[in-house]
Design a binder for these strands. Structure first.
Lengths: 345, 345
DNA sequence: AGAAATTGTTCAAACGTTTGCACAAATGAT
DNA sequence: ATCATTTGTGCAAACGTTTGAACAATTTCT
């Protein structure tokens, strides 16, 4: 059938072990033998059988990433794809393959991971944190399999993970508005049970306090990571006797709702209200007007996750590796925030 | 180290082959033996080593999908992710794993595919068609590896592929506008060297002809699959002495540019111009106003591609399988087209 | 009752690699 | 010249499965 190491060996007049050693650049092989063998490989179109190699070397040179649930929220797709791109790129660069598995129920996720890790099809896993994969984390921890979390686990703060500094990001976003002269700044948050909502709220509060600005609780609303949340928040905000002149919004999609709400109510962005949001998905750039957003480096998040995982695979046992990686964010300024409010009374 | 088939065999008091046959539900195994072995497996937490299995069975039960280039066009992410979701879901259902590989240059793509297929790490490949992977197609064809193309190849019309009927889709889109009473309908196309542009143009033309409507060449503009294209098209269209009252736009992203252009020029959608576009990405739903779009069933495209590939892998040799799969599209009507123009003079 | 077919299990070879050990040849040290 | 190293290669066992062939025990057919 397909050409094996033995075929190469025979044709080159050496033993299979020699061929194998050529493949692994063993130093004991002479220049000429090496060249001869390589020539034959080329001629025969030889490619090593990865399965056979894995079997004996007890390593697969591949990792898997578990896609959370159906994750109906389609807009998340941009996020995941970008992440996967980062993962795949760095993994391939390190000579690793990436396997994608889609979770159904949590139980199914555990089974999938279990089959892949215990069946030695992959060497490690990357988890895209979606609230409740505790079971999966539990499984990986107790079985001592290498894995890394994208996001942050409050329950297991010590596990290898890659994340942003969301507190700082929100602080920066708020600071940006303050530096433009805004004094009345509101916050549109996500679900309060999400760590990211809480972290960002914290950064917002800190920035306000530091600047000695007023913080009113009617200027803070909670919602989902959905457009409607932003939309609804607007009818609320704009009916207040004292309205904010700027808003920090927890996510680009929510911002889109904010924009639509303001438009329908007849307000203009940024003149009537400035907006800063998070994640810098393509929709932030594509909306009208384009929205200032904190770029959280999604690709980088994936890239780093892969790097950290592979490192931990290759040095299993060593514990000197950084446990928590923080990916830097940066403010991308767009039309939605290029307006300085008139000096208040 | 980890528990093997021999450990199970010993503990259950049978031979390894018996255990193997239990695993494969061989009919020659007695009820009781089978149960006993299963119990032991459970007890020991046994998982078959996939590599060892692959090695002897000469099949990996996995496929790969090659992500085209860096594909900087981030918005494509939504498209790809949705496709991948479809692929992964169906593959997992059929007991297959999915491996993602990211192409750099075309040459690197060939090498990656070559390593994966010749190295017997995967049984087949799914290609996401991006203009010029002819080299990859060439390679797969000459080596007789199972693969399927998402999209259509003009050069190799006979290969296994999954696609939409873009001519018909454009016909339907145009028909929709006609049925609303529009008589002057323009077309914003993509790059003319893309098959999809040409197919959609063709459907548009056919619908116009069939309805006996005037077709003016100044009502047809070409561009890229980018926002700017749509934007630029608007300054052109709206300066014509005789303007169309409706537009068929080749892609949602381009529509977004169209929308922005119209907005800046002070026109309203749908009152001044109705819009219908293609792909039904989330941005079509999220824009203001939401845009009527032809949903091309991206998830389904992926799902079907995976199904077709796996089928062809399992029945290699048979040639009775459908060569070309057409995924149905459907019109999703939104605000951008709910307006009937006043009767023309 | 004996032959033939069926049922349940084991043996051993194979899948294509890697790698510790052995060994011969070449080189270097004395 | 002799012995100790170094260099280059080959042998054979191992990795954890699957599977054809063999065989014994049981059942079915005449």
């Amino acid at each position: 059938m397909s050409v094996t190491i033995k075929d190469v060996a025979k044709k080159a007049g050496v033993s299979p072990s020699t061929v194998s050693r050529v493949l692994s650049n063993n130093t004991r092989i002479s220049r000429e033998t090496s060249q001869k063998v390589r020539d034959v490989m080329e001629e025969l179109g030889y490619h090593p059988n990865i399965m056979a190699k894995s079997l004996v070397s007890r390593t697969t040179e591949s990792i898997c990433v578990i896609l959370p649930k159906p994750a109906e929220e389609l807009f998340l797709n941009m996020f995941f794809m970008e992440l996967i791109r980062g993962i795949v790129t760095q993994a391939n660069r390190s000579g690793y393959d990436v396997l994608i598995s889609s979770g159904g129920s949590e139980q199914e996720e555990v089974e999938a991971v279990s089959r892949l890790l215990k069946g030695k099809r992959v060497d490690g896993a990357i988890l895209l944190y979606s609230r409740k994969d505790d079971q999966v984390v539990e499984f990986l921890k107790t079985n001592q399999f290498p894995f890394v979390l994208v996001g942050r686990s409050e329950k297991f703060p010590e596990i290898l993970s890659v994340d942003n500094d969301n507190v700082m990001a929100a602080y920066d976003a708020t600071k940006h508005l303050i530096s433009l002269g805004h004094q009345r700044i509101g916050f549109v948050s996500g679900p309060p049970n999400h760590i990211v909502s809480r972290d960002r709220l914290k950064g917002y509060v800190t920035a306000l306090e530091e600047a000695g600005l007023e913080m009113r609780k009617e200027w803070i609303v909670e919602g989902e990571f959905l457009q409607e949340s932003g939309y609804r928040a607007m009818s609320f905000f704009m009916n207040l006797p004292e309205r904010p002149t700027a808003l920090v919004v927890v996510d680009d999609l929510v911002s889109l709702g904010v924009l639509r709400g303001l438009h329908e109510l007849g307000y203009k962005v940024p003149e009537d209200l400035c907006i800063v949001s998070f994640n810098n998905l393509s929709i932030a750039e594509l909306s009208s007007p384009p929205v200032t957003s904190i770029d959280i480096g999604i690709y980088n998040l994936g890239y780093t996750a892969s790097q950290a995982l592979i490192q931990s695979i290759q040095h299993v046992g060593d514990r000197q590796f950084q446990k928590r990686h923080i990916i830097p964010h940066r403010l991308v300024i767009r039309e939605s925030s290029i307006y300085t409010p008139p000096k208040p009374s």
